[in-house]
Write a protein that binds this DNA or RNA. Structure first.
Length: 914
RNA sequence: GGGGGAUUAGCUCAGCUGGCUAGAGCGCUACAUUGACAUUGUAGAGGUCAGUGGUUCAAGUCCACUAUCUCCCACCA
């Protein structure tokens, strides 16, 4: 039975995946090599968007997590990797709205209404959700699909409602005001990260305001400005602090008050500002700081029109109003000057480019400062608990520099606004009582959003419930809050809601806290911190001990994948954009996985380009062919390892195999996947293929070949699951008893100390150097590579091993004859070199170019002289001899000895030539 | 403005807690070809480890400053 000459990934991958899944190996209870007494290893898969396309970020996440999962599964831990998808509220709704717009429905919300739009979204999700799941499988992800979850599943919705109710009862959730980004054009709120800042030239106006001159780019918001703010240390205005007096303003005199605050930059403009908290985030925050002094008055309505406070300007849009107002101020003599060269950042909605009008609206919040969590014997706030879990090392972040970022974020953490003015998502389970009049007005608006509650002046604080608290009557109507919860609210519960919470199910008890949370560093704040928040609060409330309340023990953050030039891959430049599915098709999943793992450092970005993937495809093929060689050359596939048959080379490779098992295990354990992969790569390609297999062509030990092959397949399996599983199947077909069970559930290899042969290891390594040196001398002297020549080795302690490996040396250095002498020989007309005390002479009388030999040897002598000088310098340095560890000193001594010996021989060679 | 990260061979990057005549892959040069593999093999060229100073017996590795490039957060009435 013979394998194809090269590995064709496409032929095998889908079948292998199906076989894995069907075998039940993905589930913790379905894996035969599991040891139930070992600590479970759990990863909650960060749920991709249900409407998403697999991109390189997902691919990286899946590759890293699958390595950890497969490794621990093979280690015998009960292993659970729980997959799922996220409803991604804003992204999904806007995606569907855009799609509908393309289909001719210009204002989907207004034209379709809530119910119909949600239906459309659901239809879309139904079709697209399978997409991402199929693609996740393509990456070879060994996750437990029987436990798959979706953030909109009924049981997860139940978790969301339970959480909301608990927090409401504990007074953590409250309804309050907040300055949000409002797009009057699209009638929607815009999240901070969906706001684009466009640099624009604007006109900057200076007005006389009592004794001050104030500057503004937005005069139309200034009608209600009664508060003047100056910097507390600004000498120019110190006399006015706290004063209140009347000034002439746009529509007549108003009463103004001066308050000092550090937010004012004395260098900017005139160092004086008046504030408009209703239409500026900064001003709003200032108002929050001085709630007794500053009132919030809306000037512009939700459609961008002036409200009655503007007097004669009422009903104008902002640009009309600005023009008219400036004219009026000029007439009144209050316009001081105009600066047309003012450059500022204009906030626009990145969808639709509508200019953002900050508005103050009622929203639902989570209080992060209220001390309600019973944590480590005292009541602590969310903020304090978030700090404690990292400070007390209950959760470890890898790499740890992100601790700093995390703390910085918490220090500036404000109450979390959890309501969103969109329809797709978990609807806020609060009900308000409306009068008939209010209700009539409310239902007249097609685009239902919470701002309407303010428009129709609903004062009812709302009551919690999944159903209306009472039946509607002729005069009383109940409506549910039209908004939905922030997607991160449900995602925050992901690690425990997917395990059955609020019920403490068997799975929950067994697999929570999860072991590792692996994700990109870009969502550290959005998600990681919020999971910690939700988990610690909810589970502590359930009465679990603190250490059981964290969502995960470790956070592993990977970097972003960038293109060859280190730029973000963007759809704008498709040539740099790598679609994981396309490259999987082209190079195979294993190659793609390796290219995402090797060369990546935790938390650091990595550049990816197709040549790199092609390189790993070559490696995968090398794996294939090394196995092919073994299968073609082994007759008794189950031959047991028999120490009495071990040659020095066998001992060397067994020793090296132990070494790679130890190193790979250590690196994976330390989450160093790149070095782990690299070392196995080097072991397979270098040690196994370049040397041991080559040596096996002279004399072979079948049992050792099989041992090495099986071990390396196991070590590679977490990295390249497909090709290794295919080959394992070939071993099985060839009758290998160990390969009876699939590789995915085969125990991880362990180093066997009986096969540690450090002396032999060193000997063979030196023999390798000798072969290299002969090859080097040949090629330096332009000896025809095909020509077999004679070599003489003499002197030194390597002689015995040389004799043993004579056949190998003859073959690998392409020699016709090898003479080996215990004592140094005097060979005339030869190209010569010295290695570890052994002289290497190639008698090539007719081919020698004495001048070239001379310059080569002279150069080598110079190098040696310099080297010896450095070491002698070190060794004669008292500080070094006293301070350095003995091992280091010993190494220098040996180096010196060898170098001196070599120098001596080279010198005599040189003299001979002269 | 605040905080990260990066700066090592032509390119992409390793080099963990200081002990290195500084490594890998790709690319380049020369050579080899039906025997596991051209998705290959062999040999080679190529680096004052961004700069300056400091700590140390010893610095690519630690510290300080400088320069350039990047990312995140906060953004100015």
């Amino acid at each position: 039975m013979e394998l194809e000459k090269s590995y064709d990934a496409k032929k095998f991958e889908d079948d292998i995946y199906t076989a894995w899944e069907a075998s039940g190996a993905f589930a913790p209870e379905g894996c035969p090599c599991t040891d139930p007494d070992k600590k479970p290893f759990t990863i909650s898969m960060p749920p991709p968007n249900a409407t998403g396309q697999l991109h390189l970020g997902h691919a990286t996440m899946l590759a890293i997590e699958d390595i950890m999962i497969r490794y621990h599964r093979m280690q015998g831990h009960p292993t659970l990797w729980l997959p799922g998808t996220d409803h991604a509220a804003i992204a999904t709704q806007s995606m569907v709205e855009r799609k509908l717009q393309v289909e001719g429905i210009e204002k989907p919300r207004e034209e379709l209404g809530r119910e119909k739009l949600l239906e459309e979204i659901q239809k879309f999700i139904d079709i697209s959700q399978n997409n991402i799941k199929t693609q996740t499988r393509k990456m070879g992800s060994s996750c437990d699909w029987t436990r798959e979850k979706y953030t909109m599943d009924p049981d997860l919705a139940n978790a969301v409602h339970t959480m909301f109710q608990n927090m409401l009862e504990d007074g953590l959730i409250y309804r309050g005001y907040r300055s949000i980004n409002w797009d009057p054009k699209m009638q929607t709120t815009v999240a901070d990260d969906e706001v684009d800042h466009v640099t624009k030239n604007a006109t900057f106006y200076y007005f006389q305001y009592g004794p001050f001159v104030i500057g503004t780019a937005r005069p139309e918001t200034k009608f209600g400005d009664k508060i003047v703010v100056v910097h507390p240390d600004d000498e120019r205005y110190k006399e006015y602090h706290g004063k209140s007096f009347e000034v002439e303003w746009i529509n007549g005199p108003i009463q103004c008050t001066v308050i000092p605050d550090e937010v004012v930059d004395p260098e900017f403009g005139t160092g004086v500002m008046t504030i408009t908290p209703a239409h500026s985030l900064v001003d709003f925050e200032l108002a929050q700081k001085h709630p007794d002094k500053i009132e919030i008055t809306q000037i512009i309505d939700f459609e961008g029109k002036m409200l009655p406070i503007a007097g004669e300007f009422e009903g104008m849009d902002i640009f009309e109003c600005r023009k008219a107002l400036v004219e009026k101020m000029e007439k009144k003599g209050l316009l001081v000057r105009i600066d047309k060269e003012y450059e500022h950042q204009l906030a626009v909605n990145y969808r639709g480019k509508g200019v953002i009008e900050p508005q103050v609206m009622r929203q639902w919040f989570i209080d992060v400062n209220k001390k309600v969590i019973d944590w480590k014997n005292k009541k602590q706030s969310i903020k304090e608990v978030l700090q404690d879990v990292i400070n007390s090392e209950m959760i470890e972040i890898i790499p740890d520099r992100f601790n700093k970022t995390y703390f910085h974020w918490i220090d500036n953490l404000r109450d979390w606004c959890i309501s969103r003015q969109i329809w797709w998502g978990h609807r806020i389970p609060m009900w308000y009582k409306l009068t008939k009049e209010q209700h009539d007005k409310y239902i007249a608006y097609p685009n239902q959003s919470s701002y309407l509650l303010d428009v129709i002046k609903v004062e009812d604080p709302g009551t919690y419930g999944l159903k209306p608290p009472a039946e509607n009557t002729d005069t009383e109507f109940y409506i549910q809050d039209p908004d939905t919860l922030d997607t991160w609210f449900s995602s925050a519960l992901w690690t425990f809601s997917t395990l059955g919470w609020p019920n403490h199910t068997e799975d929950f008890k067994k697999f929570h806290p999860t072991t590792v949370m692996e994700t990109g560093y870009d969502i550290l704040f959005f998600w990681i911190a919020r999971m910690i928040l939700a988990s610690t609060y909810a589970l502590r409330r359930d009465g679990l001990p603190e250490e059981k309340c964290i969502p995960f023990e470790k956070v592993y953050l990977h970097g972003m994948i960038r293109d060859k030039d280190g730029k973000k891959m963007s759809k704008a430049r498709p040539e740099t954009c790598i679609n994981p599915l396309e490259v999987i098709e082209k190079y195979g999943t294993d190659a793609v996985r390796l290219s995402l793992i090797i060369g990546a450092t935790p938390g650091n970005d990595m550049n990816l380009y197709e040549e790199k993937i092609a390189g790993y495809r070559n490696f995968v093929n090398k794996i294939w062919n090394s196995a092919r060689f073994v299968l073609m050359n082994v007759e008794n596939i189950n031959a047991p390892l028999d120490p009495s048959t071990f040659s020095t080379a066998d001992k060397w490779v067994l020793s090296k195999t132990n070494e790679i098992i130890r190193e790979a295990t250590k690196e994976i354990q330390n989450h160093q996947f790149s070095p782990a992969g690299n070392k196995i790569y080097e072991f397979l390609w270098g040690t196994c293929c370049d040397w041991y297999i080559e040596m096996s062509k002279v004399t072979k030990n079948e049992a050792v070949l099989m041992h090495v092959l099986k071990t390396v397949l196991k070590l590679l399996h977490p990295f390249t699951p497909y090709v290794t599983e295919v080959l394992w199947g070939q071993l099985k077909e060839a009758g290998c008893t160990e390969a009876k069970t699939m590789l995915i559930t085969t125990p991880w290899p362990e180093a066997n100390p009986e096969y540690d042969f450090s002396d032999e290891q060193e000997d063979i390594e030196k023999a390798i150097e000798v072969i290299r040196e002969i090859r080097h001398l040949r090629s330096e002297n332009k000896v025809d590579p095909v020509k077999k020549i004679k070599a003489v080795l003499s002197g030194g302690h390597l002689i015995d091993i040389m004799r043993e490996k004579e056949g190998v040396i003859l073959q690998m250095a392409n020699l016709s004859e090898l003479e080996i002498h215990d004592e140094p020989q005097n060979i005339e007309d030869a190209i010569s070199s010295v290695l570890h005390g052994t002289s290497i002479d190639l008698p090539l009388a007719d081919m020698i170019d004495p001048e070239k030999e001379l310059s080569r040897l002279t150069k080598e002598k110079e190098n040696l002289d310099k080297f010896i000088q450095t070491i002698e310098g070190k060794l004669s340095n008292e500080g070094f001899v006293n301070g350095a560890p003995p091992k280091v000193i010993q190494k220098q001594r040996t180096n010196l000895e060898e170098a001196k010996e070599k120098l001596q021989k080279i010198t005599s060679l040189l003299e001979k030539i002269k």
